[in-house]
Amino acid sequence: MAKFQNLFTWAVFMITLLAQAMGKKITIGANGEDNDWDNAHATFYGDMGGSETMQGACGYGDLFQQGYGLETTALSTALFNNGLNCGACFEVMCVDDPQWCIPNSGTIKITATNFCPPNWDPAPDHWCNPPMKHFDLSMAMFTKLAQAKAGIIPIKYRRVSCSKKGGVKFELKGNPFWLAVLVYNVGGAGDVTSVRIRGSKTDWLQMSRNWGQIWQIGSNMVGQSLSFQVTTSNGRTLEFDNVAPGDWQFGQTYGGKNNF
């Protein structure tokens, strides 16, 4: 019996490690915040202009055009959660490194817009490999906390509520038989976990997540005005009625009147 319990405990332990490696789901409260600080490390990519931080694994495209700017980060596997944490917001501070941390730099707030992929080549400094928690910041954000020549710094981080101007945005992509929607500028928890769509000629239909925060449905929605229901990771759902008019076009963005 004792041997069986030991094997069971070992199995639970290994499953836990595997889950952490595949991506951590960060639990937050109803207001989209987590008061507990956790430990991680941070580096940066790109230059001060942020050109290399555009596009990325969340599907947001031009981060300046969409309002995210340079206040962004790529997340390691342990935090990215296979893209479900795209849009989540974090507060970060530089700690325990007096050589490189800028004195009294305080904290920065950033939005997850990209993925920092693991590197399986043998080396001790692959910071984005699981199970390590790592933030690959834009250079502009990194240098608010530490000197650029530091390269990598220890940090503390926590989830915070996203504060976005204006309503939730919906960019329509695809073709007459396949509609994809990029959902962005999401406040509150920031990360979207479910999207439903309703045309003026249909009932509510569940969309599936393609990648990042791009959601899709294999239905012809052309010629119908479109409404959306969006649910974020803290369980809040908002309805956006008649966001896109009946003559909407692929490649266009339509904004809701409200936000989380």
Score class of each variant (00 low, 15 high):
Thr53Lys: 05
Ala42Lys: 04
Cys128Ser: 15
Ala88Phe: 03
Gly29Phe: 07
Glu33Tyr: 03
Asp47Arg: 02
Ser76Val: 05
Pro124Val: 14
Met22Arg: 01
Gln66Arg: 15
Asn104His: 12
Asp136Val: 14
Gly46Ala: 11
Thr27Cys: 04
Ile28His: 03
Asn104Glu: 14
Leu18Asn: 03
Pro103Ala: 11
Cys89Asn: 12
Asp38Cys: 01
Asp125Tyr: 15
Cys94Met: 06
Cys128Trp: 14
Thr77Lys: 03
Cys86Ala: 11
Asn114Ala: 13
Trp37Gln: 06
Thr113Cys: 13
Pro117Lys: 12
Trp37Thr: 05
Ser105Asp: 06
Leu70Trp: 07
Met93Leu: 09
Gly32Phe: 10
Ile102Glu: 06
Asp125Cys: 09
Gly49Ile: 03
Phe80Ile: 00
Glu52Leu: 08
Asn35Lys: 09
Ala57Met: 04
Cys116Leu: 11
Ser105Pro: 08
Val95Cys: 04
Asp96Ala: 13
Leu75Asp: 01
Cys116Phe: 13
Cys94Arg: 03
Cys86Pro: 02
Gly106Cys: 08
Gln55Pro: 01
Gly23Thr: 02
Asn129Trp: 08
Leu84Asn: 02
Ala21Thr: 02
Ile26Pro: 01
His126Ser: 15
Lys109His: 11
Ala40Lys: 04
Gly67Thr: 05
Gln99Asp: 15
Ala40Gln: 04
Asp47Gly: 15
Asp121Tyr: 14
Lys24Gly: 00
Met48Gln: 11
Phe115Ser: 01
Ile108Leu: 05
Thr111Met: 10
Cys58Glu: 07
Phe135Arg: 06
Leu84Tyr: 02
Cys58Arg: 08
Gly56Arg: 06
Phe80Tyr: 15
Ile102Asn: 07
Ala112Gly: 11
Asp125His: 15
Ala21Cys: 15
Met48Ile: 15
Cys116Lys: 09
Leu63Ser: 12
Ser51Met: 09
Ala21Gly: 07
Val92Lys: 04
Gly67His: 08
Trp37Val: 06
Gly61Asp: 13
Asn129Val: 06
Gly83Val: 00
Asn35Gln: 10
Lys133Val: 02
Thr27Lys: 10
Ile26Ser: 00
Leu17Ser: 01
Thr113Ala: 12
Asp38Trp: 00
Trp37Lys: 06
Gly56Leu: 06
Asn104Ser: 13
Asn119Glu: 14
Gly61Ala: 15
Val95Gly: 05
Asn39Ile: 11
Thr43Arg: 08
Leu75Cys: 03
Phe115Arg: 08
Ala123Thr: 13
Pro98Asp: 12
Asn35Thr: 10
Asp136Phe: 12
Lys24Val: 02
Thr107Ala: 08
Ala78Ile: 00
Leu75Ile: 02
Leu63Thr: 14
Ala19Thr: 00
Leu63Val: 13
Val95Phe: 10
Gln99His: 07
Ile110Met: 07
Ala40Val: 01
Leu70His: 09
Asn39Glu: 07
Cys101Pro: 05
Phe80Glu: 01
Ala112Arg: 05
Ala19His: 00
Asn129Ala: 10
Phe135Asp: 05
Val95Ala: 05
Pro118Gly: 14
Leu18His: 00
Asn35Val: 09
Met132Ser: 08
Trp100Ser: 12
Phe80Leu: 02
Leu79Cys: 07
Gly59Ile: 13
Gly87Arg: 06
Pro130Trp: 03
Glu71Gly: 05
Phe135His: 07
Ser51Gln: 11
Ile108Gly: 04
Asp62Tyr: 13
Cys116Ile: 13
Leu63Phe: 09
Thr53Ser: 14
Ile110Gln: 08
